[in-house]
């Protein structure tokens, strides 16, 4: 339960950071989380899932506000790949930013 709460809080932070400032808030917040949770369990999994959840919710919000299917069609044709692959790429990118930044600061913290 505590872990789930933590996951939601971190996710909320990623989502709010992205919404108000931009994508680069994910590594910034990920790094902060890595320091704070350096000695906790599941730190990297939490960071990864939180980022995916945050950006997933933001994408879902976009989809609820407009013709996401049409956008996927256009982007798919533009980048010559299935539109859904871009969704996966977006979520994977968020995960990469979060996990790498959290792992970096957690590692540095542990090295001290």
């Amino acid at each position: 339960m505590r872990w789930l709460t933590q996951l939601l809080i971190v996710s909320l932070a990623f989502g709010a950071g992205t919404w108000f400032a931009g994508w680069w808030m994910v590594p910034v917040l990920g790094a902060a989380y890595g320091v704070w949770a350096a000695n906790r369990r599941l730190t990297l999994i939490t960071a990864t899932l939180a980022a995916v959840l945050a950006w997933g919710v933001l994408l879902a919000f976009d989809a609820s506000a407009g013709p996401m299917g049409r956008l996927l069609q256009v982007l798919g044709a533009l980048f010559r790949m299935p539109g859904a692959a871009l969704v996966v790429l977006t979520l994977a990118y968020a995960a990469l930013l979060a996990v790498s930044s959290a792992a970096l600061t957690r590692g540095l913290r542990r090295l001290r």
Partner: peptide
Amino acid sequence: ALWIGAKPIGAGPPLGSLLDPAHGIWAVVR
């Protein structure tokens, strides 16, 4: 990740600002 996120791809945008679900290419649906 930061490098590909911040460096423009050819004449196009950097990956980070392109994929940003709040301000990137996805935002055009809104």
